[in-house]
Simulated scan of single mutants.
Amino acid sequence: MAVDPLLKQAQSVWETLAAVPVSFPPVGGLNVVTSPASQLAPPSWAGILVLGDAAIVTAPTDRAGQVLRRGLAGMPISALTSAEAVRAVLPAEEVLGPAVLGYVSHDGFRLVPTVCSVERLAPGHQDLMTLVESVPPEDAGESGMDEITSAAFVVRKGAEVVAAAGFQAWPAAAAHLCVLTAPGERGRGLARQVASAAVAQALADGLLPQWRARLMASRNVARALGFRELGSQLSLRLDQGEPRREG
Results as ranks from 00 to 15, higher is better:
G65P: 01
A213F: 15
L180N: 12
F153D: 10
D62A: 14
A55M: 03
S150T: 07
P21N: 11
R186A: 08
A217N: 06
V13S: 00
W14I: 00
S150K: 10
S35W: 10
Q66G: 10
C116E: 12
A169M: 10
M216S: 08
E185S: 11
V13P: 03
R237Q: 13
P21M: 13
W170L: 15
P36E: 07
G28R: 06
L111K: 14
D4M: 03
A10D: 04
R186S: 10
L51A: 05
E119D: 14
E229C: 06
T149Y: 06
L7P: 10
P25R: 09
F227P: 07
E138Q: 13
E229Y: 14
S35R: 10
W45L: 03
M129C: 02
A79F: 02
T81D: 08
T130N: 14
L234D: 02
P60C: 06
D107C: 01
D239W: 01
V104P: 11
D62H: 08
V132A: 13
A182C: 04
F24Q: 02
L230V: 04
L234P: 02
L80G: 06
A152C: 12
S196C: 07
A41S: 15
R223A: 14
R223M: 08
W45F: 06
A174C: 09
V89D: 03
M75T: 04
L7D: 11
V162W: 05
F24E: 01
L190P: 10
A222F: 03
E119V: 11
